[in-house]
């Protein structure tokens, strides 16, 4: 596996990233998600140009769902903005954990703007898995290629959903929606090689379920900070003990 990920140039690394995107399970996940989003945008009277631009600019499916249904149902814009910013908090620790992997001694700030904007669950999960085996100077290009691959898939399947709209039988629509939690669960488990990652996954599942059931405000933020910190503290204690 690591042998096939050696690149002679940045453009080779970029296209290697595009190829990885098309071969990963997230390609199917994005296909399912964005067929659904395309149908939603169509039903709420937004244009395909608007949908495509929202994928390019927002690049986060949960936020796009909130935005499209918010506009469509005429919700108060300040409430929509608040819901989106709460859903986006997860992007902050993801960027903090990702950029040190992408950066080398010679990387300029400008080179990090694209990987920062491209950060999303699919790209983050795959980057944390694949980047460590790449030469550091190829990682940014690979990461950008991976993201461009995912984004193209999302835009393309957004078109499919937009023009197919409403033709989906409910059971098939449910199957498409189920792709997101199922693939997030399994691919996060695959990436969890360290005990800390496994603990964070387990604590986050339990806390996320509990806090949501108890209708605690900002449930996801507390599940993340609480579960993540607990996993980190246990990891540190085990390290100190050995």
């Amino acid at each position: 596996m690591s042998g096939s990920l050696t690149f002679d140039s940045s453009s080779a690394a970029f296209f290697g990233g595009v190829r990885s995107a098309f071969m990963s399970v997230f390609f199917l996940v994005l296909a399912g998600t964005y067929v659904g989003l395309g149908a939603l945008a169509h039903d709420f009277g937004l244009s395909i140009v608007w949908l495509t631009l929202s994928t390019l600019l927002v690049w986060a499916a949960p936020a796009q769902v909130i935005l499209i249904s918010g506009i469509g149902t005429g919700a108060a814009l300040i409430e929509v903005a608040l819901a989106i910013t709460l859903s986006a908090i997860r992007l902050f620790p993801m960027v903090v954990a990702l950029l040190p992997l992408v950066r080398t001694r010679d990387t300029r700030l400008g080179d990090l703007i694209l990987p920062t904007h491209f950060t999303s669950v699919s790209m983050w999960v795959e980057s944390l898995r694949l980047l460590p085996v790449l030469a550091p100077e190829r990682r940014a290009a690979f990461c950008n290629g991976l993201s461009v691959g995912y984004m193209s898939a999302a835009i393309g399947f957004g078109f499919v959903g937009f023009y197919l709209a409403a033709g989906l039988p409910p059971l098939l629509a449910a199957t498409l929606l189920f792709l997101t939690p199922l693939s997030f669960l399994i691919s996060t488990a695959r990436n969890a090689r360290m005990m800390m990652d496994r603990l964070a996954l387990g604590f986050g599942l339990v806390l996320g379920a509990l806090l949501t059931m108890l209708h605690v405000d900002f449930d996801l933020m507390w599940a993340g900070i609480g579960g993540g910190t607990l996993a980190y503290v246990i990891h540190r204690a085990r390290e100190a003990a050995t």
């Binding site: 908090i89 620790p93 939690p181 964070a200 599942l205």
Partner: peptide
């Protein structure tokens, strides 16, 4: 800080999964 961020990001993602 980066290690802790990774744990928080993973746990947040797990919370999203549970909620979905």
């Amino acid at each position: 800080v980066v290690m802790w961020s990774r744990a928080v990001a993973t746990a947040t993602l797990a919370g999203v999964i549970a909620k979905l």
